[in-house]
Every structure is written in C-alpha cells, then in structure tokens.
Design a protein around this nucleic acid. Sequence first.
DNA 1: ACCAGCAATGATTGCGCTATCATTCAGGCG
DNA 2: CGCCTGAATGATAGCGCAATCATTGCTGGT
Lengths: 343, 343
Amino acid sequence: MSDHDAKPRSARATGSARLTDVARVAGVAPMTVSRALNRPELVSEATRERVRRAVRETGYVPNQVAGALASSRSRVVALLVPTVAHALFAEVVQTVMGVLVPRGYQVLLGLVGYTPTEEEGVIETVLSRRPDGIVLTGCHHSALTHQRLAASRVPLVEIWDMHEAPIDMLVGFSHHAVGRAVAEHLLARGYRRLGVISADDARAERRIDGLRERLAEAGQEALPLRRVGTPSSMPWGREMAAELLDHHALEAIVCSSDILALGVIAEAQSRGLSIPHDLAIMGFGDSSYAAASFPALSTVRIDGATIGRRAAEQLLERMARPQFERSGAVEDVGFSLVDRATT
Amino acid sequence: MSDHDAKPRSARATGSARLTDVARVAGVAPMTVSRALNRPELVSEATRERVRRAVRETGYVPNQVAGALASSRSRVVALLVPTVAHALFAEVVQTVMGVLVPRGYQVLLGLVGYTPTEEEGVIETVLSRRPDGIVLTGCHHSALTHQRLAASRVPLVEIWDMHEAPIDMLVGFSHHAVGRAVAEHLLARGYRRLGVISADDARAERRIDGLRERLAEAGQEALPLRRVGTPSSMPWGREMAAELLDHHALEAIVCSSDILALGVIAEAQSRGLSIPHDLAIMGFGDSSYAAASFPALSTVRIDGATIGRRAAEQLLERMARPQFERSGAVEDVGFSLVDRATT
DNA sequence: ACCAGCAATGATTGCGCTATCATTCAGGCG
DNA sequence: CGCCTGAATGATAGCGCAATCATTGCTGGT
C-alpha cells in the first residue's frame, strides 16, 4: 500500500488504479499506456508487454467515463424500444446488441412506451449521455423530440415503421401495406364480413387503415372494431371476440397481435365454431406459439432480426465516418404473410 | 452566432451549449446553474427562473458524462441477463427498469449469454463504465469475474438463482427446489416413469438434480434425458419427445421450458396419445401461451416481475447509502407450480 | 451599532483520460 | 558528417462538470 500521495478531493474517490498508476509501474508516460491499450499498433511490442504486466499488477480497469469525456466518443449506443416485454422488440434488442457489442459498443436501453410523451423524457436523458448513436423505434415523435434529435447531430436510425421523412436513417416496414395485404388475403379466400380486435397503438392503427382501405376498394365498408387494454393478452382477445361475435355476423377476425388471436381461437372453439370455415382468424407477429397453436395460426411475420441487424449495420457505418450528413436513407425490409390453418 | 471564443482543442467538439454558456446567458456563475439543475432547493426561485430561461434559450442538454466524472456518480445501473429473447428475462428487464428509471437511473444492458466465458468480457467492459450498481443474472461466475466484482465495491444484486455465497445481495429462487416440487407433484398424481427434455443450461441442470433427488427418494432411479440445442423451440421439443417415446415407456415428460412442452404436446397429439392420461407434460416458465395451449399446460411459474422489482429496490437502498458493506442478504421469492390440464 | 448565523452565490480545482504537438533517436543517404 | 525521415514516446492542455471552500448580503438579537 502506498500512502504517499494524499489526494485533496476525497482521498481518491474510487480507490482503484488509474492510468497514471499503471504508467508509474510500467515506467512509461501515461500517454503511452493509453496508446498501448487503445491503439496498440502505435506502441512497440516491448512496451506493450510492460504495460500489460503493469495492468495486471495494478488490477487496472479503464475508466471509460473519463475516456469518453476526453475523446468525445462514448462508445455507447442508445437503443430505444417501446418495451422488451414483446418478443418482437426483444428480438430487435437481441440482434442490435449482437452486432454492436462485438464492435466495442455498449448499449444503453431505453423503454419509451407507446406514447410520444413517455418518449420525450427518455430522449432527453439519453442525449445527456452523449451516445455515439441512437436506434429509435417508431416515428410519431413529438415536435420537441424531433427537434432535439435533429439538432443533436447524433447518428440515428429509426426502426420499425416506414415513414416519409426520417430524421436520419430508417429501417422498417409499412404497417399500411400489412393491413392491405391482410385484407387482400382474406378477400381472396372469400371472407367478406371482417372484424378487428386491436391494441390502442398508433402502429396497429396504421394497419387497420390499410385494411380498411383495401376493403373499401372491394366494396366492404363495415369493419366492427374492438380495442383492448394494455398489455394485450389471451383473455382480452377472448372477451372482445365474444363481444364481436355477439353483435355481428363475422366471417373473419383480424387481431393486432398473435396473443389476441389465441384468445379468439379459444372463444371460437368454445362456441363450437369451425375454424376457418365458420370463422377465420389472423394474428400479427408470428410469435413462437403461432405455429404451435391448434389450429395453427395464420399471421404476419415481421423479421425483427433483419431490422435489428440492418439498423445496427447502418449505424456502424455512419458512426465510422468522422463527418456525415443526415442521409434520409430508408430501407424497407418488408414482411410476410404466413398462411396457416386459421384462414 | 457568437464567434468570439475560439477553443484550442477542436473548435468545440460537440457544438452544443455547455454549462458555462447557460451561466453567461443567465448572468450567474456556472456553479449556480449546476445547482439550479441538480439541487434546485439550494437556489432562489428568481435565479432558478433565469436559469430555466437560459437553458431554453441555449438549447442546453446537460453532459452527464462530464457530470459522472466530476461527481463519481454515473447514475447508470448495469443490467446483465443471459438474453432478452426469453420472456422471463425480458420481464425482469422490464421491471427493473420500471423501478430504476423513475428514480433517475439509466440502464446499461449487457447480454452475458449462458456461459461464464461470455460473462467475463461483458463484466469487464461494464465495470469500465463505472456503474452505480449492477444487477447480474446467474451465479456460476468465473473466478476472475467474481474477484473483479468483489473488488470493484459496486453495489451488486445477483438474481435468479439462489446461491449459498452471494458476492453482495441476492434475489432469486431455488432451481433445486423447483425440481423437487415438480417430482413431488407428478409422483402425487401417480406418474412414475418420467423423462426429461432440457436445454443445456446450468440452471436447468439444477432443476433436474432436484427432480432426480426426489425421484430417487421414491425409488425411481431411471430418468431418460434428451438435450436440445439453442434456442429451445417447439420443433426441438417435438423431435426429442419422439425420441424419448420411441425408446422408453414414459408416463410423463418434464421440459426445461414451456416452448419445448408445446412441442411435446404436438408430438403426443400426433401419436393419438391422450393427455394427461397416456402422457403427462410439465413445462417451465408459465409463458403467456402456456394457459392458451390445448390442453392447457401445467408448468412452473417464476415471478420475474417480483425478482426484478425486489432486486431494483434493494439496489436503490444500497446505492442511497454513502458507505456500505457487502451484506450477503439473500431473498427467496419462491415459485409456484401451476397445475393445468397436462398433468 | 454590532455581530452571529444563515441563505445564496461564486471561485477554484481536479475527476481520469486523450488530442495534439513536441521531442528523441535510429537508420539511410548524398 | 550533416540532414532528413519516420517510428516511438513524452509533455501539455483541456474535455464539461461538481465538490469544496470562500464570500456576500441579509436577518434578528442584544
């Protein structure tokens, strides 16, 4: 124990070794230690070895907070999703991290909920961490959020929703197109009288818009709708299916998530309805259990892994560039309609 | 635009306003701005208002990197889970953040996988961020990890597994007890010849140990076992169920996750086996779809929300204390066996 | 009138690191 | 032999903020 350097502030806040301690032990300048650790190719092998030894000896753990301040590079990416409780977003988180972490970035997770208001506060605190990049889910930002993000000049990828005017880059799919495709599919199968059970969520709303648009083109104007609370669940699906079926003669029910669809299946079965003959059912998300349900659920598959991977890759590329402009690059990863036994 | 203060380094790295800019506009000292923002009760209302106005005018966004360095408090908690692709861990993440974020902490997410080796690297980089606290899933750490964490003196909660010697605090349940409980339940129902389908995971292993122990007490030594790859999935469950059923006359199959159990159900149904009369099935996790499957899946419910909440609360309490000792506090949140239609 | 006591504010310093420029030293060449 | 070149290393000066202590101005008690 060396007690010869009493520090004025608080006798050394952390108690742990610093770069200068390593430098002293290795007999080199602090700057050389910094280089040996961060840009080893600039340091001779002999010196590198001495530094390595000194690091081991002192138990040095770099302080990236100080490093970030000095270099204006935090090596942190903020990842903002509505929730991780939904498998689709969890998949995105998993994939984004799978790409970013091996490249030396750490991930600051933010849950922005489903409303612009929740998002606003999170964005502000996130920006105060000076992330090197941001992955942001959704696109209905408040004016303030939009302005802050644009002003911050932090590389940014919006994901999930297609969107006419991205702040920077965007990777997603069109909810509107999903709605149209679902309508198309059901119409082609001969179903006419449709109903909807949906979470109260702007993205689901877009799908309903698309659905309604396509139905209107086919001369179908009626579209009974039930909204469920948060979070979506089987019982919600079942309850709302009961309501819909009690009040309307429906041939098909479209749900904003697979879990709701499972509830609809349960209700249909309990009424002795034959699926899909008496009632067709569409989910959304292609959750792991969609294929497992009986009858197997027709649904829409969103490839969260592709979205996450592409978003991370675009972000990496952008972050690697010292100067950059907002690009407005938009990438549509599409979706696929999974036709199983319920339609 | 003011061009009167050319900075030596790089003409101001960020381009954004700093505390001193706000101070100049507000006509007060930088320190007063800092206080107005962080400890408003120390500043007069008049000054607070001027600062607020100046913040708005300059578009100031605090730099928490600098703040963290100066104060040795990062207001960041590292949250380390094996994966978020599994609903149980996603639930923990969701809950921990639900408690921590409103208290002003941000969450650095780390995915440590299921092996000590993966964990090791993540822990090191996480410590370099100087988090104010760590929530760490699992307890089979490498010696190096264990030592680093203990030495770091960062408040730490291990979660998920009970464990005889926690580094600091621990909130979890006993996998061994789960195994025993499952055995107990099946034995009580009269099932004797059991089989297991399990992921290759140390935690699942503990449950199997408990299961085997209780079976042995009942004179049942045989316990055919099949391991599945990662990630667990229905097809894996179905395939391994087929193998087990082809080679052994089983009365019940215990799975390391609900999703595997769903595969077993599918296989049983395709063979025309009556559940649970011909074959009983147990899952693990009480996933959202467990209640929805047909027949409804018996399983073990782990309350990830409680684990997350208690872990976050314990961490908050500990972080609030200026001085602290490693406490060794262990909290068992238990589990519940959910008896549905498959047993 | 004087000063203790307090609330409000300010000046100084350094958190631990890296950008930047300066220095040193071999080796090679005319 | 001086000079150039480039590789390796070092010295200096902040990055933007908050801990700490100092100062100011104001109240009320005597």
